[in-house]
């Protein structure tokens, strides 16, 4: 690890992490500004989804930015992939995939105990958020087919080095988001009688915090690696 330390990658990772932390912080600041958290679950009235959406989009842009540098050394497959990025087929595939994912998350929310139809708007917001945190970045980066392949197959050949770095980070992001949303339910049964204990507020906040924590976890990896390289260089 220490021997193949890559400056470019570290920069990318650190920027990525700061971006996602910034997203979470902006969300928190927004929540603090609005005071009343009850609206968090409504679709039209909450800015959380747009903020997260922008955040994820920025991360993809970041990955693209660092990817530019590698442009010269791409294989043919990677070139083909890149060329096909903006075709309608890929775009449509990506959108369908995200839509299906949202439905799937909504279904999972319901079978894990959310009210079946009563709070459909809240369930929708939560599943949208989860989709944004988990599937969307990958889809934005690689398109629908590519995302599926990354998820279910061995590492496809068309993934560039930089994209690989981003995918690794997205993985932690997604894992943290899902686990956070899952763990958020823990406060629901408590008898504190706070208004923020209502579904889906703890799950939304849990998902945000979870993805932030996932990113920090990824970040500690980087920092640790950096520190080790630094120390080994110094001693050598």
């Amino acid at each position: 690890m220490a021997t193949r330390f890559d400056q470019q990658k570290t920069k990318h990772q650190l920027f990525h992490v700061s971006l996602s932390l910034a997203t979470t912080l902006i969300c928190m600041a927004y929540m603090q500004y609005r005071r009343n958290w009850a609206h968090l679950g409504s679709f039209g009235d909450s800015l959380i989804v747009p903020i997260v959406f922008t955040g994820e989009l920025l991360k993809v842009v970041l990955a693209r930015f660092y990817g530019r540098i590698e442009d010269g050394v791409l294989t043919t497959k990677q070139r083909q992939k890149k060329a096909a990025y903006f075709t309608p087929r890929e775009l449509l595939g990506g959108l369908t995939l995200q839509f299906l994912c949202t439905l799937l998350y909504a279904f999972i929310c319901i079978i894990l105990g959310a009210p079946v139809l009563a709070n459909y708007e809240q369930t929708f917001v939560l599943s949208l958020l989860l989709t944004l945190l988990t599937v969307s970045p990958t889809v934005f980066l690689l398109g629908g087919g590519g995302a599926l392949q990354v998820c279910f197959c061995e590492k496809p050949e068309f993934v560039t080095k930089c994209e690989d770095t981003a995918l690794d980070l997205f993985k932690y992001n997604a894992l943290g988001g899902i686990l956070g949303a899952w763990a958020g339910s823990a406060v629901a049964p408590l008898d504190w009688g706070r208004d923020w204990q209502l579904y889906p507020i703890p799950n939304v906040i849990g998902a945000l915090l979870g993805s932030a924590l996932g990113n920090i976890y990824a970040c500690t990896h980087v920092l640790y690696a950096t520190a080790r390289v630094y120390i080994s260089k110094k001693s050598a």
Partner: peptide, 15 residues
């Protein structure tokens, strides 16, 4: 298992 089942390409019908 999943990664083993689809070594190179993901196919819905196969899945």
């Amino acid at each position: 298992s999943v990664r083993m089942d689809f070594r190179s390409r993901f196919k819905i019908s196969h899945f």
